[in-house]
């Protein structure tokens, strides 16, 4: 009798442990899937930017660049439409690690706008060009120089896109949308 009772109690405990694990696993998956699944590509978010301004958005893209020195911002790229957006760290994000470069992430954050004037763009472009010229004269091709070269080419591309948008929309400023990140998941 005692042996039977002990056996039954053991079975009950094992079953409970297994269901706890399964429940923990399911809870884990549910939490992750709840907003990651809702994330959209950058182009879709930018297209409805006026509607989404100052609101929580869910966005995904490939990490193109991580700010090496502070790790406080990344640029993520919509590989289909060749649009990138800056994500600033905030909320649950203390910073971004360098190894995220090349990985696809989903970001939850608030869409923000900064209006960049034509004068600011002109000044920015001249500074970047000066930096490029300086690096071209530098023969010491260490890895830090390569990192700066990469970030410079990203900036020039961004400047050219801004000018094109301003011309097409007949505006003397460029709206820069960025995400103030709250959380992210690696996909």
């Amino acid at each position: 009798m005692k042996k039977t009772l002990f056996f039954l109690v053991a079975i009950a405990l094992i079953t409970q442990a297994c269901s706890n694990n399964k429940e923990a696993n399911n809870q884990l998956e549910t939490n992750e899937q709840s907003w990651v699944a809702d994330s959209k590509i950058i182009a879709d978010v930018i297209e409805s930017s006026e509607k989404n301004l100052e609101k929580e958005v869910f966005i995904k893209g490939m990490v193109e660049h991580v700010c090496k020195h502070s790790g406080k911002r990344v640029f993520i790229l919509d590989t289909i439409n060749d649009i990138s957006i800056r994500v600033e760290s905030g909320g649950n994000i203390s910073g971004f690690n360098n190894e995220l470069a090349g990985m696809t992430i989903a970001v939850k954050g608030v869409l923000k706008e900064k209006q960049i004037t034509k004068e600011y763009i002109d000044n920015w472009e001249s500074k970047v060009k000066a930096k490029i010229e300086e690096e071209e004269h530098d023969h010491d091709h260490d890895h830090e120089t390569e990192g700066h070269s990469h970030s410079c080419s990203v900036e020039i591309n961004s400047i050219n896109k801004m000018r094109k948008w301003m011309k097409e929309n007949k505006k003397d400023y460029y709206s820069v949308y960025f995400i103030l990140g709250q959380d992210y998941e690696v996909l």
Partner: peptide, 13 residues
């Protein structure tokens, strides 16, 4: 594998 904890999440590459 590179394994670390970033923003209280697992990072694996």
């Amino acid at each position: 594998f590179h394994f670390k904890r970033v923003n209280d999440k697992p990072f694996v590459k």
